[in-house]
Simulated scan of single mutants.
Amino acid sequence: MTKPTVFGFVLAVLVAAPASVLVALYRSEDLDPAPLPGGSSDQTSSVPEIHSCILKASEKVGEGLLPGPEDLAYDAASGFLYTGCDDGWIRRIKLRKEGETAKEGVEDWAYVGGRPLGIAFGPDKQLLVASAYKGLVSVGEDRAVRLLAEEADGLRFGVADGVDVASDGTVYFTDASYKYNLATHMLDIMEGRPHGRLMSFDPATARTEVLLSGLYFANGVAMSPDQGSVIFCETPLRRCRRYHVRGEKKGAVDHFVDSLPGLPDNIRYDDEGRFWIGLCAGKSKSWDLMLRYPMLRKMVVVSSKLADFSHHVRKGAGVLSVSLEGEPLALYTDRELSLSTGGLRVGRHLYYASLVKSYISRIPLDELAAGKQ
């Protein structure tokens, strides 16, 4: 977005807000925006390999049959790719093998209700689901659905979001906001206060524990391959941090990767030395400006311009791959791509999810790399 467009948008917000609304800015008790830690950084981590036109290289998988496939999980033994959809269904897609030309089939696999977001397989082949309106859910191989952690545990879930499972069966998941729900999640981001948490569920004791609180819209979760730590994303701060679950640093939090080229959503490890981070929107001047000035964020919300603002800033989405040490390696993006929520590498292809599309997208990594697009 060019500078004239950025400031033109801000000016439109100011002009659209009548005097009565401006007075309400100082009286509203529902939204209390705060400065974000460190202000609004204009820095962006350098990425050595960038593919900036992935839409023309993308193929649609399951088009029209997958409403809002927000996160992805792959079962290599069966060849099925699983995703959670906006209508409460977990669906699976039988991926075609190398050289096959048949169209992938989409199957309604298990109805979990709510709005399934993060999904991940546990060691016993059960699928763990973070449902925005229900909490933590598991689905067995027999497709039986079981509610594991819910508000009855004394923990109010606003947006149960990311999830991953350790080899010992411990489930790690995030609650992006205990104050807002999925329908109002943009208010949490605009408020700029730390309502997010990183949590764990122990299947042996059925105990849910808050590991970290005070997080800024805690989103995706991924176990490290050595099982010693959990990587989690904080969307508005454009960063991912590491929480140590064992060893000398147990309970400590440290840096993993920050100054991302967009707003991180889900994160997934591919068993080949790379984490894949979905970027639901690219970094923009409008977003930087909003994060720098809390009162401007409140004006956008109170003047009913939040939908317009969201539309302006959600473009430039994509997927970023990083090393085990959090070093950015490759960015797959497109100026017209929006609300891409996660990426998963399966063989030679990168599959990426979406909050709003009716399909999963797939790009051939080797062909893309050869063209250096």
Rank of each mutant, 00 (worst) to 15 (best):
T5P: 00
F7V: 11
A12M: 11
V15F: 11
A24C: 07
P35C: 10
P35Q: 08
I50K: 09
C53Y: 11
K56E: 15
K56W: 12
Y74R: 01
D86E: 15
I90Y: 00
I90P: 07
L95I: 05
L95S: 10
A102Y: 06
G105H: 12
G105D: 15
V106L: 07
V112K: 05
G114Y: 09
G114M: 09
L117M: 12
L117W: 06
F121P: 06
Q126H: 10
A130H: 08
Y133L: 15
S138T: 14
S138K: 03
D142N: 11
R146S: 13
L148V: 08
E151N: 15
E151C: 13
L155Q: 09
D164I: 02
A166S: 06
A166G: 13
L187S: 11
R193T: 10
V210F: 04
V221Q: 00
R239K: 14
R241T: 12
V253C: 03
H255G: 09
G278P: 08
W287D: 13
R292P: 00
V302Q: 10
S304P: 07
L306A: 13
V322T: 07
E325P: 10
S338A: 14
G342Y: 05
G347A: 08
Y352W: 12
A353I: 02
A353K: 02
K357W: 00
S361K: 05
E367N: 07
